[in-house]
């Protein structure tokens, strides 16, 4: 950890508001994106991202500085996300992961209802713009939770295997094999539309 990072961490531990504002500004998009891609609903993702930063504010003393701050933030976000996914599953909230705002906008633009991955409103334009995004997001949402996580962290956030392993708390080899299976599953889900 560099001197600058150590000084920044000290300010965070002293609950320096300016430092926290800097941290939120710097990492809000990464954390929000991870949660949005994992849950598939922007309102839920924002609510959860807010919880993540409040937790970080309260528990920054637990960060020992043996990993990058971003890694620790991702770890906190993943823990929150797993709890929220379980909660949503208990609530049987089937909207999450299938109907995000992009999907609703895309469907509205076509004058139709939002659809899930298996039903394509306009097959001839399935690979274009918002429709493609909706299909890909829906395919990601259908993956197992662990597979979804590695896909988002690797193929969207472009993190290294080492960092993903540190976030998920499993060996790098596990991440590599998990990513391979996740990508194969994604290929099968998207393959029928490509």
């Amino acid at each position: 950890m560099s001197l600058r990072e150590r000084l920044f961490l000290r300010r965070l531990r002293e609950r320096d508001e300016g430092a926290f504002r800097e941290m939120i500004e710097q990492y809000q998009n990464q954390i929000f994106n991870l949660l949005f891609r994992m849950i598939g609903n922007k309102e839920e993702a924002e609510d959860l991202a807010q919880e993540v930063f409040v937790t970080v504010f309260k528990s920054i003393d637990q960060f020992r500085g043996d990993a990058k701050l971003s890694t620790w933030l991702y770890r906190v976000a993943v823990n929150h996300c797993k709890n929220r996914v379980k909660y949503l599953a208990r609530r049987h909230d089937r909207r999450t992961g299938v109907l995000d705002e992009t999907a609703e906008r895309a469907a509205a633009a076509q004058g139709g209802e939002p659809v899930a991955a298996g039903r394509i409103a306009a097959p001839d334009r399935a690979l274009e713009g918002a429709e493609t995004e909706r299909l890909v997001q829906a395919a990601i949402a259908e993956l197992e939770e662990d597979h979804r996580l590695v896909i988002v962290l690797r193929d969207i956030e472009e993190l290294s295997y080492e960092e993903i392993a540190s976030i998920a708390g499993v060996p790098e080899g596990t991440i590599k094999s998990r990513l391979h299976r996740a990508r194969l599953a994604l290929k099968e889900k998207l393959g029928k539309h490509m």
């Binding site: 998009n29 954390i31 929000f32 891609r37 995004e133 890909v136 997001q137 990601i140 969207i156 994604l186």
Partner: peptide
């Protein structure tokens, strides 16, 4: 998947 890009807060 890579083309999805990062959703902004």
């Amino acid at each position: 998947v890579g083309l999805l890009g990062r959703a902004a807060a």
